[in-house]
Design a protein around this nucleic acid. Structure first.
Length: 670
RNA sequence: GCUCGCGUAGCUCAGUGGAUAGAGCGCUUCCCUCCGGAGGAAGAAGUCGCAGGUUCGACUCCUGCCGCGAGUACCA
């Protein structure tokens, strides 16, 4: 019986007993993990509540401890329960039958398998404007989204990953202005430039975008080029459109390559141009008008616009609460397009994109992109039609996300607001020291602040590839010190895994609504609470198995099978070991490793990957301690040795699975 | 103004209404005869922003206040 099943059974027993003995329906029975293994494996602080309810129902005053004693008897009859203690003023502490639990759960592989027939869930993340290289703030979005995808899959969900491409927006227009008006280039010249470029194309655009920012700042007049360009982009054809399409697509390729370095991949790239040209917006617009969700403003400051009223954001001025979806010049706002896109994701729009293959990753996995061309690729999978949609977008966009959610829910009340989830998170900012390290002159005001916001327009930010390069070279230096004899390829592969692990862990250890103040020293650290620390615990355990198998002249699998057999047949001796003085120590590791499934479920339910990061760190810490306190190779008692082997195996598999769910791989050695 | 988030050790952060509030960094001291050193042990360090309230029990829930951040665009 798995830990989740066990917990559920115990809760039900408590509920049933309360009903039978006291005639009280407890509803959801709260349970908690006691602060120490010595206090048990699961605690029910329920006797206090029961005493209160009994008094309320009958007027009879009962001692919580006495109530706990009655519950204790019913829980003890269950064979997975070793013992139950009533502690303090009325805690009910349940101790599992350790030997039995280990024998039954030692082969646990923790995750549910994905059911291909289950309803699909969509996660949209990354969605970097395709006009420059991705920076560390974008990576927080992608890592958060990708990890959440992995968590959902570990929970057995079928997930589709979308990366929205805003290829006709202001930011792409700006970099096009740079190419056309500052560099005076046409498409052919851009291609020629690229051929001789020593930096990646997205790096070039990063700098050019910054120049355009200055160009606008010099003279407000210069912004007319932006408006002209935007107009060309909306038209969907012509020389400027072709040029912009090329630039945006090249940037998408660069960003996908960057994200692939972090093991982040996508199924579909839906583009804004198709939302427009395939008339998604018009369709959504009609639906909203039909349902009376939006109205045309004849007067006031929003005169000439189509707006959606938004009652929960009361403003002081008359119509402050309304959100404009169609501007007075007839163009659609981003939020308007986003409503159409959201409706499509949920299979509610009644229109579909056309698809073509964008690229395949090394292992053959395909990424598709939307197109307005009337082509039907028979190989294109079915996209959209999701039961639930998670949008990974930073917290500053909470307001437009609310508008999207409410808008869709008003048009489709059956679907409701629950189908649209804004997975919001705080930004990554720079510490003033980090900004200065990047060569930026800070204003006196900025120097006083605890952090400085990154700005693509100003070119202020840590590029994702730069940081990963730096982490890889730091890691490589360490690997070279430790393993001078291995091949360069192997060194680099280890360094890469360490670097990715370090950065992903760094971005995931903070809870979503904490601003990550980027600091080079912390981000580049390989010590303390880091991905490296966790990887190291797993590597050490793997090396134990190699050494032990070698010592006993057997294979790892044979060693494990034999140990599983011993655990299953030597129940009494295993029980004796668990009640010896090292018993709590060993057991705490078993129970911690077994909790992975619970953690995965919890992380999905509250959309918080940081829970998993903390878990992996705590498990790693317990493993380092085990490593320090127990020696398998020199253990002479064969049953105890088998217990140590099975525990070491269970924990390394839990850690490896937990880390993989964070997108962190365990290297062969380090 | 209004809406949302935050305030916990010197610093950066965890913390389902439950037991003695925890980590990492930094600081002090110690441990390489090993399956360990990208480690491990021990220590110092707290008005959980302030004031009320609810509760058998509050860092956690409610109210007010103070401080910080974000949003409140015909930007996204």
């Amino acid at each position: 019986m798995s830990i989740l099943k066990l917990q559920e059974t115990l809760r039900e027993t408590v509920k049933k007993t309360a009903l039978e003995k006291f005639d009280i329906d407890l509803g959801q029975v709260p349970a908690e993990v006691p602060p120490k293994t010595e206090l048990g494996d699961l605690a029910f602080p329920i006797a206090f509540e029961l005493a209160k309810q009994i008094k309320l129902a009958t007027g009879e005053k009962q001692n919580p401890r006495q109530i706990a004693e009655i519950l204790k008897t019913s829980l003890e009859s269950f064979d997975f329960v070793g013992k139950v203690e009533v502690a303090g003023p009325g805690y009910l502490n349940v101790f599992y039958n350790r030997a039995k639990f280990l024998a039954e759960n030692s082969r646990n592989n923790f995750f549910k398998t994905v059911d291909e027939n289950s309803p699909k869930v969509c996660v949209e993340h990354t969605s970097v404007n395709p006009n420059k290289a991705a920076h560390i703030g974008h990576v927080r979005n992608s890592v958060l989204g990708d990890t959440f995808v992995r968590i959902l899959r570990a929970n057995g969900k079928r997930v589709e990953v979308q990366n929205y491409i805003d290829n006709t927006g202001v930011q792409v227009a700006d970099v096009v202005v740079g190419f056309v008006h500052l560099r005076k280039m046409d498409l052919a010249q851009i291609k020629q430039l690229e051929a001789g470029l020593e930096i990646p194309f997205d790096y070039y655009c990063w700098d050019l975008y910054t120049e355009v920012g200055k160009f606008y700042a010099e003279n407000e007049e210069n912004k007319k080029f932006r408006a002209e360009t935007l107009h060309e982009l909306e038209k969907g054809s012509g020389e400027i459109y072709e040029l912009a399409d090329y630039v945006a697509t090249r940037n998408v390729e660069c960003i996908l390559r960057t994200m692939n370095r972090f093991d982040i991949r996508y199924d579909l790239l839906p583009r804004e141009s198709e939302i427009l040209h395939l008339h998604f917006w018009q369709k959504a617009f009609e639906l909203m008008k039909e349902r009376g969700v939006i109205h045309f403003e004849n007067e006031g400051k929003n005169k000439g616009c189509w707006v959606m009223p938004f009652e929960s954001h009361e403003g002081t001025d008359e119509h402050d609460a309304d959100k404009i979806l169609v501007r007075s010049n007839g163009t659609v706002t981003y939020t308007g397009k986003d409503i159409a896109y959201q409706m499509w994701k949920l299979g509610l729009l009644g229109l579909d994109f056309n698809y073509k293959l964008f690229q395949a990753y090394d292992d053959g996995k395909e990424v598709w992109i939307t197109t307005a061309e009337q082509i039907t690729d028979a190989n294109a999978p079915s996209f959209g039609h999701s039961e639930t949609v998670y949008n990974v977008i930073d917290t500053r966009q909470s307001y437009p996300q609310e508008v999207v959610k409410k808008g869709v829910a008003t048009i489709f009340p059956d679907k409701g607001e629950a189908a649209s989830v804004h997975l919001s998170y705080e930004m990554v900012a720079l510490s003033p020291a980090a900004a200065e390290e990047l060569g930026f002159e800070l204003s006196d005001e900025d120097k006083q602040r605890t952090f400085v916001e990154m700005s693509g327009r100003k070119g202020l930010g840590v590029k994702a590839d730069d940081l990963l390069d730096r982490l890889e070279s730091d890691a490589l230096r360490e690997v070279e010190n430790r393993h001078p004899d291995i091949s360069n390829d192997e060194k680099q592969s280890i360094a890469h895994r360490i670097a990715v692990g370090a950065l992903r862990y760094f971005l995931l250890k903070y809870t979503k609504n904490t601003v990550v103040v980027f600091d080079f020293k912390e981000a580049l650290s390989f010590e303390g609470e880091t991905g490296v620390y966790c990887q190291n615990a797993a590597v050490r355990f793997n090396s134990i198995f190699k050494k032990v198998a070698e010592r006993f002249e057997t294979g790892e699998n044979e060693l494990l099978e034999k140990s599983f057999g011993t655990i299953e047949s030597e129940n009494e001796e295993v029980a004796r070991i668990f009640s010896s003085e090292i018993g709590h120590d060993l057991w705490s590791l078993v129970i911690l490793a077994s909790r992975l499934e619970e953690i995965i479920q919890q992380a999905a339910a509250v959309t918080e990957p940081a829970i998993l990061a903390k878990y992996n760190f705590n498990l790693s810490k317990a493993m380092h301690l085990f490593h320090h306190n127990h020696r398998i190779i020199s253990e002479e008692n064969p049953v105890k040795r088998a217990v140590l082997i099975v525990i070491a195996d269970l924990t390394r598999r839990a850690l490896t699975a937990g880390l993989r769910t964070m997108g962190i791989e365990v290297p062969e050695r380090m």
